[in-house]
Design a protein around this nucleic acid. Structure first.
Lengths: 204, 204
DNA sequence: CGCTAAGCGGACGATATCGTCCGCTTAACA
DNA sequence: TGTTAAGCGGACGATATCGTCCGCTTAGCG
């Protein structure tokens, strides 16, 4: 889906190998730091955790906003990848949904404000990824509805928001992924045809 | 449950009326600001939004940590209140759970890091509230299990974590509470007896 | 191996935020 | 209505963070 060293956002030319490595390490460190301390985390903290100088951070990402934008872009890449793989496998719609949600949980630590279009101003590239994720999730739902594994009144938006909520994670919960999987299991069970419908049901 | 002007955390003596008002306004402003900008939001921002000087903020809460602690305490008060009211009404267990989750959504904007014991160091008072919330939720589950409205393999912890996740809210989603209610409806449907059990079921 | 441009890091001046301190204001009570 | 102690606010020095700049290092190539 995404070639190794290419196009995380807007790339001008090929980076030298060490530069590309540093860029990745900065992104990874930033994702962890933002999760831990919020979007206002000092750039120096990110630099230190990535094992580079602040100058390096600012060279790759001229402003904090640019860095956060790149993080968001990468989150969507990961999520789209997960969605595509989940949708590809030849299995009932509901199982594709479950796999997708599982993978979202697994990717959790790398995701920053994803799936529903967060507070950060999105660029065109990111918008396209987001739309593609949405489309893929819609097709899973559609498949499930067709093969009788998912009730008809669940909207794409419902699934997107639930996924986004999951991806937020709860901080400081031991065994988060196990617990999250149990939440998913219950939610999935509630998507079965014949389950109690929405209160204010106006159809889908 | 909580008398008007009393005991938000540790109170020494009665506050003068204007002081009590200011304290409340600071807490409300802080909740909003923290939700919007994270726990690192400048104290000056909070003070401005509350319509008081920084000195006033620091008098009521000697440190940022104290302020965040008070926010957490208040969140638990609100949640416990909601849980108690939901559990009191004479209705099937599953409906009590639904009411509780609905109220959690409604209180959303005032809740900061609640329900599962957040990253903030908790004091004894807060711990007690938290335990009480947990107990109340457990009793709802128990009631539901007994009256046949909730399947037997759902744990208290599942419900607590789901509630905490909901309370986090997703930023920048228009009509959040409506969408959140739909998530709740699906989750509730998945709690019905006879729904598909957990994957790795080892009983409860 | 030698050259060179891309990349690196951290010191530094500018700016933002912190938390204290103190003279003015006002609620509360007689 | 007079007294007074509790409360108020914002200026201020200390500290933390920002983002730039420039001399040193090194990947990549012939």
């Amino acid at each position: 889906m995404t070639k190794p060293q290419s196009n995380d956002g807007v790339r001008r030319r090929e980076l030298r190998r060490d530069a590309a490595d540093n860029r990745d390490r900065v992104l990874a460190a930033a994702a962890a730091a933002v999760r831990r301390e919020g979007t206002g985390v000092p750039m120096a903290t990110i630099a230190a955790e990535a094992g580079v100088g602040v100058g390096t951070v600012y060279r790759h990402f001229p402003s904090r906003e640019a860095l956060l934008g790149a993080l968001t872009y990468r989150s969507f890449q990961l999520v789209l990848d997960a969605a595509t793989r989940a949708a590809e496998a030849d299995q009932p719609g509901i199982e594709a949904v479950r796999r997708f949600l599982d993978q979202t949980i697994e990717h959790g630590p790398d995701l920053v404000l994803p799936l529903h279009g967060g507070p950060l101003a999105a660029d065109r590239e990111t918008d396209l990824l987001q739309a593609e994720v949405r489309r893929t999730m819609g097709s899973m739902l559609h498949r499930g509805r067709h093969d009788g594994t998912i009730r008809g009144d669940v909207r794409t938006r419902d699934l997107v928001l639930f996924g986004a909520l999951l991806a937020q994670q709860l901080p400081h919960v031991p065994n988060w992924s196990e617990n999250a999987r149990r939440i998913v299991d219950i939610y999935i069970a509630g998507m079965a045809p014949g389950a109690q419908p929405f209160r204010d049901s106006e159809g889908q």
